[in-house]
Every structure is written in C-alpha cells, then in structure tokens.
Design a protein around this nucleic acid. Sequence first.
RNA 1: GGGGCGGUGGCGGAAUUGGCAGACGCAGGGGACUUAAAAUCCCCCGGUUCACACCAUGUGGGUUCAAGUCCCACCCGCCCCA
Length: 821
Amino acid sequence: MTSDYKPGEIEPKWQKKWEEDGLYQADVDESKKKFYALTMLPYPSGDFHIGHWYVTAPSDARARFKRMQGYNVMFPMGFDAFGLPAENAAIKRKTHPQKWTYGNIGRMRSQLRSMGTMIDWRREAVSADPDYYRWTQWFFIQLYNNDLAYRKQSPVDWCPQCNTTLAREQVHGDDRHCERCGTQVIKKDLEQWFFKITNYADELLDFSQIDWPDRVKTLQTNWIGRSEGADVFFTTEDGEDLTVFTTRPDTLWGATFMVLAPEHPLVENITTPEQKQAVAAYQKEADNKTEIQRSTVEKEKSGVFTGSYAINPVNKARIPIWIADYVMMGYGYGAIMAVPAHDERDFDFARQFGLEIIPVIQPDGEQFDGETMPEAYVGPGSMINSDQFNGTKVTEQKGRKNPGLGTVIDWLEKEGTGQEAISYKLRDWLISRQRYWGAPIPMIHCDTCGWNTVPETDLPVLLPEEVEWLPTGESPLKLHPTWKDTTCPSCGEKAIRETDTMDTFMCSSWYHLRYLSPNFDQGPFDQKEYDYWMPVDIYTGGIEHATMHLIYTRFFHKALRDMGITEANEPMTQLRNQGMVLGEDGEKMSKSRGNVISPDDLVAAYGADTVRAYLMFFARWELGGPWNSQGITGTERWLNRTWALFTQPTKKGTASKELIRDLKREVHNALDRITRDYEQFEFNTIISTLMELMNVLYEAQRNGAAGSKAWTEILEIYTLMMAPAAPHISEELWTNVLGKPYSIHNQSWPEVDREMMKKDEVTLIVQVNGKLRDRIVVPVDINKEEAEKIALASEGAALYLEGKEVKKVIVVPGRLVNIVV
RNA sequence: GGGGCGGUGGCGGAAUUGGCAGACGCAGGGGACUUAAAAUCCCCCGGUUCACACCAUGUGGGUUCAAGUCCCACCCGCCCCA
C-alpha cells in the first residue's frame, strides 16, 4: 500500500470516531489510579490563538502519555466567560455580551476539536451559565456566613466626566486618563465587598505540600510580603494615638520625624491652620498618582509638613509629622517613623527637607556622623545613641531572632509602649465590580435589617437580559428600572439588591471543582467525584497568573476546607508554566503589530499533528520564544517520512543479528528518554528523539532491516511513542497500516527493556591534560587498570606523552581516561 | 520600583547535571533524479588554517585532572506584577 500522507482526511475522520466512541470519557473507577490533568481555562475573547495551543497541545500530549501509563485520566475544558472585554465588545458592537461571549465559545470549541485533544466534553463548564454562577453565588454566601466576606470603604478609579468607576485597564497613560473621554481619573471611595484572604497569609506562605515552580513560590511569597517587627505606640503632642509598624524597632532612637500617608484620617485633625493649604494641595496631587509612581525609590521625594509634632515613646523626643506619598495607606498603619540614618527613602527625604539624621547603628571601626553620611546604613552593627541599649549587637536577621530587635521588643512590651507584630503586604481581596457582565453578588440591603444574603432557594440571582447599553460605562444593573427592587428576606419590606457583580477571579477560583460534575444541582460538586478526582494532579498555564488567580484559588480552597466543604489543603499538587509564543519579529503577538499567527491557517496547511508536534519541538516549553514559520517544515517532513517509512513497499531484507540488536537498543534508549522527558515536561527533546530514531530506522531499512518480525515490533513501539504527540497519524498507522486493534490510544505505554539498552562496547575518550587525544572502542565492562593501560598505549596520546612524566591518571569507567603530565 | 528568567553556530535549540560542546531541526552550500521546477534522496555546514593544530558556550577572575555546567564580580537582553 502506498499513498501520500493526507492529514486533512485522516484527522477529521479519527476525531469524529473518537468522540462517537467516547474514547476519552473519564468516569470514576475505583479500580484504576486517577490522574486529573488541568489546563487553565481560556477567556473567550475571540478565536483560539497560538498561545492557547501552546499550553493545550503539550498538556494534552502529556495527559495522553499518562493515560497510556495506565492512569484513569480526566482532561476537562471550560470557559472563563464573564468579564469586562465582553462588556466593551457589547458597547462597541451594539450587541449583548452574552451573545458575543457564547459566539466565541462556539468557535473555540470547534478549534479545540480540530486539535485532536482528549477533552471529555461532558465535563465542560462555562462560568457565565446560570447553573454555574448559581454556585459561585452560593460560595459567596458561605464565605459571608463564615465571616470571610465583609464590606468596607475602598477607593476606586472614577471618571468625573463619564460619572462612572473604571477598571484598571480602562485607565491609560502616566497622567491616568479615562480611556473613553480622556479626562483625568480621580479616586473615589465606595462601599465594596472584600474576602479575608489575609486570614490565610501565613498558611499561603507554606508550599511544603505542593510541587510548584520556585518562580511562582517566590512571586507569591513576595506578594504576601510578610515582615516581622513591632508596633510602636507614638502619640501626638495633643495626645492623639499614632501607632506605627516598624521592622526596625532597634532604630527607634534614630527616629527624627514621622510620615503619614496623605490620605491618613488623622491628617485633617493635626494639620495646623498655617499648613492647611499646602497639605490640601499635596493630598490632591497624591490622589492622581498610582502606587507604582509613589513607591519608586529613586525619584525625588516630595512631602509637606503638617505643623504638628509627635512624641517618641522611647526618649520623649519631639519630632515633626509630615505627609508624603511614599507612605501608603494600605500598608501597615499608613504611618511610619522615619529613621533617615538607616533607611534609604527616609534618608533621601531628610536630606531633601533638611531634617535631622541621627545614626543609631554603627559597625565596628566606623564613625558615623549624621551631618556627613553619604547614604543610609542598613547593615549590622552595634546600637549607639540609644540610652541603656548602647552596645547591643544588631545582626541582619529579621524579627525577634535578631538579638537587637528581641531586646528592644521585650522592653517595649514591658513598658507598654509597643508590642511584637507581623505585617503583610497582602491585602484583602476586593471582589466588587461595578459592572454588568459578572455573577451578581447575592446580597440584599434593607433599611431596617441591613445586609442579608439571598435565600439559597432563590439562587441563582439571574442577570437581567433586557438591559440598556449606554456608552457611559455605568453598570446597566444600576440603570435597570426594576431589577434591583426586591423584598427583604428578613422582614419582607421593600429592599434593594446589591448591583455590584463579582470579580471574575472568583469564578475561576473553583472551576476545577465544577468540572467534577458540571450538571450536578444538589451542590457545587458531587462528593463522589470529588473524593475520587481531587486534588488536581497537574495544572498547566501561564506564569502571569502567579500572584492573582493562583493565590486566589489556593485561598479559596483553604477557606472551603475550613467551612467543611472540601478536605484537601491545596487544590493543585503540581504546577508547571509554559512560556510565551512571540511573533516572528520577537515581539509580543498583537493585532496592532500584525504579527499574529493563526493556528487555524496552520492546521489547514499542515494538519493538526504537525502543528502539535512543532509546538512541542520549536522551543523549550517553559521559556517559549519567537515563532518561525519556516521551521514547521521540519516537523512536516518528519511526519511525511514516518508515513513513507510505514507505507512504502520494501523488500524483505537480510539484516545481520547485530543490526537488529543495535536497532532494538536505539528504540529502547529512545523510549527511556521519551518517558523521562514526558515526566519532566521536556517536550522539545521528545520530538527530536523521535526524529533521530526515524533517521536510524531509515538507515537500517537501507541496510536490509525491513520485513523481519523484529522490524514490525520496532515499528509498533515507534508508533506508540509518537501517539501522545501526534494522535491522528499514529492511530492511522496503528490501525490501518500495521493492522493492530483500534485504538492505539487504549494501548499501554511500552516497557523500557534495560537489558536491551546495554551496550557491548563503548568509545573510550583519551585525554592528555584534559585535551582530547584519542578515541578507542573498548568492551563496556573494561576495568580501571585495563582502561589506563590501553589509554597510555594509545597512538593519539603517545605523541603527547613522549619525554613527559605521567603525574596522575584519572579513569572514569566506561567514559574517559585523563592523563596528567 | 520590585521580582523573576535567560545569554551556546546565521537561527530555534541539545549536552543523561562536572567528563567528546553544538544532538535534532530551520536556513545555506554541493550532488543524484528530472526537459525543467517542486517534492524526494545522499553529502557538507562554529571560527582561523592547504593542513597539523589552535581558538570558541556574554565579559573578567577563581575552584578542579577536567567547567556551558560550580563560586565571585560585572555587562547585556527579555518577561511578570503592582
């Protein structure tokens, strides 16, 4: 039989058959080990782009590999369907976000099918379906009832022209203007809903139960930003309490001024009449800056004196209180004690405004002078200018373990002027969005009863479909004439619904649980499915979610555990991140740059197997890199050659025993490598190993290896090895060319035969002073003495040994001999 | 601003973790087949050199019999978050 390789014919054929046969349906089966392979669900913002393929295709290949290893593998897919882009598209195209979103989902489903994935479509979940967000709302209620959801004032970006709140991505430029009208955005305080993720800060720092990349663990650790130190109780001259957090209580004697965040509530009270104007002007200026702009270390410091003074509790020093935008309200208490001698930013500030600098830590052999120090000293040393603590050693250790800090904290606690404290950068999760296209927050407000949850029997709180799309940016839920009117579940009087919707990260915090039983209506998931499938065994997706989604979902899972809804401490035991596919110009792909690669075009031109294999081959998966459209011809040729090798008529050859033995060794070596590479997510070398083996097979065929029984066995193993990467061609070759029973995807992964891998002979490397001088083929089990003898006698080495004294000979068994002269 | 990742031929990348640097592929060169082209097949392909050989893994040091790999300092590029 001979014909050309026609992926356009075989791929749809097998996709259809696999789906009809339910080949990849994964059901609870206690007799088999389970494997839950999860890939981050896509946002349906349009068509599937090459980046989606880059995470999905190799993840699918690995899930298939695990399946062949005998695991009961679940590989589900769904869509993160709520969110702002749909709302923007709705305004722009004068359509409904639902229509736009579900249209995109329909196209993306067929694209995923064209890839030949082993997705079990019965398990699909779409976060914008009422059956889904019913349970998102249910989770909100559980969090609220367990005191993990609360309401407080928080600033939002507000466009005074459009009279609406803006999402972060709608604020543009350094001057922070509204994307719609260009007006400068201001901050406005609104009552909003929060989740108490900070309750879990310490537990989230513990990664001991999960195999996640160090990068992600570091990013999360820094995001949580745990600092050990002390709260110190200052007072103003007028007797107002003013507590600050500091990581350096040992430097309290060097505090020469205080700085409050411009928005600190105390500022109004303490500002003296003559400073009022300057302070108000400064506050307004600070309002227009982002936190990044404010926290930049190198920029010129700005600030204004309030006119008031504070009393340092340790030495009763009277120190001026300033406001400056480098102090943020959200961190600590929004107030700091400034120790210019030992803090970089305080130092810059003091120099700029001529404030006093008193060194209180000094390393041996140094003599600091506040007038002349060129920069802040942040290293270890001994305390000076600090009354009874002079001479106490301060190391670089954090927290109480540092002898200097420990001693001072003990004393503060005894005096009642301070106490040990831990501060976090992590803030509670703001989940309110003043938007339409999200899950409505299931809360009702009544003037007499206050806030009440929507009764569970009334869930889901459906989004009204008839809404007006005014290009104001204001939420149509607010503008809807009747939707928000309801009755109080507690007293039955007239009440108002919450018109905010939930952050979409709330929807994606639990989608892996909805996949377990997407049609279950007695709860968010079926306990039987949970007990079998959870936790997720491998989670793949982009590094950009390291601190948002991946922290939220861990928090969410721990909160569910504490509410008795789930058991596990962590939702996903293993995480791996892929890199990014860049355009051919090395830039990020974007429509405006015109460097976008369409996977559909590639599939039409080369077939899905070639595209899948090339995505695995062209770069290191965790790094990604620029696309090269010429390179794909390499994988195309590989599959063509594979097809030809299997289908071209060959004469039965007369192969030597050695040739067959060598071939078997090559096959088992490749199998060993590919098995290891799949385990380690090294997809590029899986394909290169298969290519290498293909070249070996061609050469062996020329040398007469074809036609024998051993040859057929070798082809079978080869086909099995390429099945996860190129599922369609493998199925065709297995079923219709080799005539083996359908389906290759129900076969077991071949066993590595270590005996087969063994060699009789190896090439011994002979070096003189580390330089290669000869290669000699020797028996594999040659002993040290023998190897040394052969090396010393070798022709190549002889030239360099003449007249030299051999000082030392190093023998690495089976590898090399290095002669030192 | 903070954090992270990386730097190996013209290009993407290998190198079983300290032991033959450049596997596999792209591009390029040569040849076979063909009226011709495409496809396919075979050979060559880091630099200097006729060659022997020497030099080469961002730069400079160090450790070692042996360094792309380990240590120190520096330079450059990219990415992420806010």
